[in-house]
Design a protein around this nucleic acid. Structure first.
Length: 227
DNA sequence: GCGACAG
DNA sequence: ATCTTGTCGC
């Protein structure tokens, strides 16, 4: 199943019951393996922010080492066709994220998404759904838990504990800096879980969240404030 | 039936 | 996502 096939054949504005069935169908197409043989050159971050009027603003930034500062940024804004429903976030945000993706000139090695990947009740978080539409590996980085259970990871940067759901390991709860609240890392598409966690840790140079996501968050928030 | 619930 | 006060630490 190619990325092109997936994007040609489904709409995003579906009744919840149909959206859930679509997720089950999509989940069978996910690839949960892959790693980076060469040193990473470009890592992108994605985030969306709502403006008071209800318009959603998506920002994608491409960052480069060693400090993971911004090399390129693109944006897209639109009124979402779906409300926010826990578990159906991607149907609301993905159309706008994909519009921003089309404006990207550079080609990142991997994309970090603000939200879950496989750490989702049907294994179809925003990062995974996005990953099925593009040829770039995606990783989910959630600031809070959607589903699954876990213990408390050790207090230091780099320590982690598995996120379990229905007997399966769906992600890792990762401490990205000393003494900060951990983040929820999960596979989006076309990458393994441990390589994913390594990318997240490598791009957290100073703060809890990876630089690409922090920059995307800052940019989308700024757009939302101006509108 | 009840609670939980990414952004 | 946003709203909101105080508190702690650099």
């Amino acid at each position: 199943m190619s990325a092109i096939d997936v994007q040609t054949l489904h709409p995003f504005d579906l009744p919840p019951k149909d959206a859930i069935q679509m997720q089950r169908w999509l989940a069978e197409r996910v690839v949960t393996t892959g790693r980076f043989k060469k040193k990473l050159k470009l890592v992108a971050g994605v985030d969306c922010s709502p403006s008071p009027g209800g318009v959603l603003h998506a920002s994608i930034v491409v960052c480069e080492p060693p400090d993971w500062d911004v090399l390129e940024e693109v944006h897209a804004s639109a009124t979402p066709r779906m409300p926010y429903i826990p578990g159906l976030l991607s149907f609301r945000e993905l159309p706008i994220v994909l519009e921003a993706m089309r404006r990207l000139k550079t080609r990142p090695d991997v994309i970090l998404v603000d939200g879950q990947g496989l750490a989702h009740p049907r294994r179809m978080g925003l990062a995974t759904h996005l990953g099925l539409h593009i040829d770039v590996p995606t990783i989910g980085v959630g600031k809070s838990r959607l589903c699954g259970t876990h213990g408390e990871p050790g207090p230091e940067s780099g320590e982690w504990t598995p996120l379990m759901d229905k007997g399966r390991r769906i992600g890792l709860v990762v401490r990205t800096r000393d003494e900060v609240k951990p983040v929820y890392v999960s596979v989006g598409n076309n990458v393994g879980l441990l390589p994913a966690a390594r990318v997240v840790l490598a791009t957290c140079t100073r703060f809890r969240l990876p630089n690409p996501i922090r920059h995307a968050d800052r940019m989308s928030r700024a757009l939302a404030r101006m509108a």
